[in-house]
Structures are given as structure tokens and as C-alpha cells.
Amino acid sequence: MKKVARIAGSLSWRNIIVYGGLLIWLVVSAFPFLWTVLTSIKPLKAVFAMPPQWIFQPTLKAYHQLWFAGGEFPRYLLNTIIVVGSSVVISLAVGLPAGYALSRYSKKLGFVLLFLAFIFRAFPRILFVIPFYQMSRIIGLYDTKILLILVFVAVNQPFTIWMLRSFFMNIPESLEESAMIDGCSRFGAFVRVIIPLMGPAIITSGIFTFLLAYNNYLIPVSLSADRSVTMTVAIAQFGVSSVQGWTQAAAGGVSIALPIVALILFFQKYIVKGLAAGAVKE
């Protein structure tokens, strides 16, 4: 009896509106992905069946063709891992001391640099991509992974230092001050006292620099031709190719999205915190 009353109680108009609205947007958000997963495991005949089929004999053929049939996709994955991994590590290594210093130095110069970074964040990316294309052709770095890493580090730097700075602001200065009174140098205090407290902040910033590099299409499509092509460039090719390629394109899409899904499942709190940090500060 009690249980029934509880269910009836929770079925108020208020809850129907709240959860109904949330559910509708959940379907809108997630349905295209569900549809893609289904497409990727449908036999070709079922893909084009009208009305759309929900029940079919699933097959992993598209995944097999994509990954194990001697195609280029595994190489694109390797390129992506190297380029994105290196740019995340370098972005953080360079951004951490800068973000720290910007949170601890309150004179005019600090503000000017911070504001410059803020302005740079608003620049259209292609403004940098065109000169990079031209320069890299001249010095022979075109179509190399090093070029992509450098460009990703640079264009993500304003965002990275802003986010890291906002996290450093939350760490009281008294912490490194007491370490410095005990005879630690500032750098020693930064490395041994402050950095260890930044764990969650580093994860959050790392996730966002990862997303900025992993998701980017303009930079690799403009600055690579073959050797350093990444997965986003490859999948965009699929999208415009023949209709028969659509199951493979779907399989490719699912493959690219899987690491992101894992990221959401394991680090959802950090992602939400990072989105909020950009906005709800001070």
C-alpha cells in the first residue's frame, strides 16, 4: 500500500513535466547515435529497407572491413593517438606554470597577458591555419605530426591557461607560503605542494584539451595530406563517399565516438565542472 502511495505521489504533474521534458531532450540528444550504432551492425539490405527495420540479423562486417581488412583506418587511429596525446601533455606542461603565475601575480602585466589570451581565444582558427600551411610548405613540416602537435598546443593554449588559472585561484596562497617559510623555493613549493592538490583540475583541463584536439577537423584537414591524417579527416571522407560506404562510415563514427562515451561515463563530473569553471568563476 505504502509503495503504491509513493509511486502515485511521485506521479504528480510537476514530476511529469520535469521528467517528461528531460526525457524528450534525452531522446533528441541520443537517438541519432543509437541510429548510427544500429546502422553499423545492419546488413546492407536492412540499412535501406523502408519502413526502417528494428529487427535484423546483426553483423560486425563493417567493423571488420574498417579495422582488419588492410585499410588505412588503424594508421589514422595511431596518428590521432600520437598527435592528440602529445598535444595534451605539452599543453598542460606549458600551461600549468603559466596558469599558476597568472593566479599569483596581480600587477598590471599579469592582467594584460591574461586579457591578450582571452582575445586570442576568439580568433577564427583559419586565420592561423593559412599561414601555417604556407610556412610548413616552405620549411618542409607540411603533413607531419609535429606540425599538428605544435598547432594544437598553440591554438589551445589560451583556453588551457584560462581554465588552469581559475582552478589555481581556488588554492589558498597560504599553502605555498608556509612551505616557503620552511625553506622551500617557490618552484619547489609549486611542484611539491600545489601541483599535488591540482589533481582533479589537471584531469578536467586535460579532458578539455583532449576534446579540442581530438574533435578538430579544420586543422588536420588543412595541414595533412597522407602521413599525418587523423580519424576525423578520414571519417569526413566516408560521409561523402558512396551510399554503400555508409555502414562503414557508421562503424567509423561509432569507433571514434567510443572513447568519448567512455570519457563521459568515467569523468562526467569533471566535464561538468570544466564547463562550469569557464563561466561560474569568482
Binding site: A30, P32, Y217, T232, A236, V261, I264, I271
Partner: peptide, 8 residues
């Protein structure tokens, strides 16, 4: 999902 998966 729509925001974090690559736009392509």
C-alpha cells in the same frame, strides 16, 4: 553526447 563527440 552531441557536444563531446567530434562534429564531423
Amino acid at each position: 553526447l552531441p557536444y563531446t563527440v567530434p562534429p564531423v
